[in-house]
Design a protein around this nucleic acid. Structure first.
Length: 445
RNA sequence: CGGGGCGUGGCGCAGCUUGGUAGCGCACCUGCUUUGGGAGCAGGGGGUCGCCGGUUCAAAUCCGGCCGCCCCGACCA
């Protein structure tokens, strides 16, 4: 006899994520790891978002991964909006294309050998892979232009991983690649990416600058970097009236001078600020298409090299930069676009009491209404619940306790600035409540 | 890769100088009390002290080697 149909229905079927804190893996800590230095490192570990496995190797726990995937969602929407096509390429790759481009020599490239003795690499970025495929599949000018992208793990044998998730040996990157028949086309695709990247950064809620970049190991002819100012930043950017540049690049450009303790541009003083690179875009030209034979035939039948550019974004860095930029002494304060949950609902009062029942009802109403809510239904004192909520940093905190029953109002606190908002009606119609929550939500940073 | 530091229960630490088989706070488990800003009492569980070797009657402690992790610098998305 086979299993009865009911055997498949032993537990509750959850079509939406489980978000009761009593059942959720959110291991918060009062104390940060002793060796943590960067604010984002300390807070992301303390808030239960990430855990370390080794130097530069990190696990994203459920709440942390939600934040990461928020960034991914924004990036995906904006990439799709400029006509980019999502795909997936392998991390484990044959070494041949890397020999052809000369990048096999890079120290940070992980190299390994399989059981048959074949040399393999773990990709640190995907120019070789995507160009390999385009070389095989694109034959004609009619096949161009193309924008291809994926979200994939990158592996880098970093000399020194550091600062939590800010500099790791393995990390997810959105990398996209554009393929055009000539330089003018490449410039067009590049411009599309500038627009997409500006929209992405604006939507994340981060403070950021787009600066002239260094072409670095990517090779190529031009680059911009998207920099998020924060204390743990590894780079220094120079800022002036309508001007922002990576300090290394700036010093090589006309008008910028180092004077005494500071910098000037055309005589105007510039300020120096630490920042982390959260995205970069490179004009590659034919740097990869030539060695890998990525060519097309034009209208006259001439074989020409494809013009390429590549574009990266590190979601983990955007997450960490957001933590750095908006944290206060109580913990994280997410911009609403990145928060793991929109609402952190907490009940004050013992299980089995009317106030707990009211909180349960509110949880159901919010969840059914499509609000992403984390419900602290644990049997703990209020102090611990408030502290954990402020550590985790969801934009809106709703509290239901005995007071709520007395006043008929749900207490609302805005995480940014810890401001008390006007109370919400406890016994209204669901639609009315959801409308009020939505209105409050829209007013948040 | 240079310089510095650190590895003792899930987290933070003491013990090491002067060897005698491990302790504190938090967390965790049980019971009772408590419930609007990190509670109280009582009871309890968990560590081959990073690894290997040496010295010694005896090693967390002394010696040698190795591994791991962090910070500063160089480098790097």
């Amino acid at each position: 006899m086979g299993p009865e149909a009911d055997d498949f229905h032993r537990g509750p079927i959850r079509s939406t994520p489980m978000t009761r804190l009593s059942e959720y893996l959110l291991p918060t800590e009062k104390q940060a790891p002793a060796d943590a230095e960067a604010v984002s490192h300390k807070l992301m570990v303390r808030a239960g978002l990430i855990r370390q496995m080794g130097a530069g190797m990190w696990t994203w726990l459920p709440a942390g991964w939600r934040v990461h995937q928020r960034v991914v969602g924004i990036v995906r929407e904006e990439m799709n909006a400029i006509g980019a096509q999502e795909m997936l390429m392998p991390v484990l790759q044959p070494s041949e294309p890397w020999r052809k481009t000369g990048r096999i020599e890079i120290d940070e490239l992980f190299k390994l050998t399989d059981r048959k003795g074949s040399e393999l690499v773990l990709a640190m970025t995907h120019e070789e892979a995507v160009t390999f495929h385009v070389a095989q599949t694109v034959r004609s000018y009619r096949d161009l232009p193309q924008i291809l992208y994926h979200f994939q793990v990158k592996e880098r044998d970093e000399p020194r991983p550091r600062a939590g998730v800010l500099r790791t040996r393995e990390f997810v990157m959105k990398d996209s690649y554009s393929f055009d028949r000539d330089q003018a086309g490449m410039e067009d695709r590049y411009a599309l990416h500038v627009g997409a990247y500006d929209r992405i950064m604006q939507r994340t809620g981060l403070r950021y600058y787009r600066v002239e970049g260094d072409v670095g190991m990517m090779g190529g002819t031009g680059a911009h970097e998207y920099m998020a100012p924060c204390a743990a930043g590894e780079d220094q950017i120079l800022l002036g009236e309508g001007y922002a540049a990576n300090v290394e690049v700036a010093l090589a450009s006309p008008g910028v001078e180092k004077v005494g303790e500071g910098y000037t541009r055309n005589g105007q003083p510039l300020t120096l600020e630490p920042a982390i690179e959260i995205g970069n875009i490179f004009k590659l030209g034919t740097r990869y298409s030539e060695p890998l034979g990525a060519t097309y035939l034009d209208e006259s039948g001439a074989e020409l090299a494809i013009w390429m550019a590549s574009y990266g974004i590190g979601p983990a860095r955007i997450v960490a930069a957001a933590v750095e930029q908006f944290a206060d002494e109580h913990g994280i304060s997410w911009p609403r676009a990145l928060a793991p949950f929109a609402v952190h609902l907490l009940s004050v009062g013992k299980p089995g009491t009317p106030e707990r029942e009211a909180a349960d009802t509110l949880y159901a109403t919010l969840k059914d209404g499509g609000v992403e809510v984390l419900y602290d239904d644990r049997d703990l004192g209020p102090g611990e619940k408030f502290a954990d909520a402020e550590l985790l940093g969801c934009p809106l905190r709703l509290t239901v306790g005995r007071r709520s029953l007395e006043s008929g109002e749900i207490e609302a606190q805005i995480r940014r600035g810890r401001e008390q908002a006007a109370g919400l009606p406890l016994d209204g119609e669901p639609a009315q409540l959801l409308g009020a929550v939505d209105e409050l939500w829209r007013s948040l940073p």
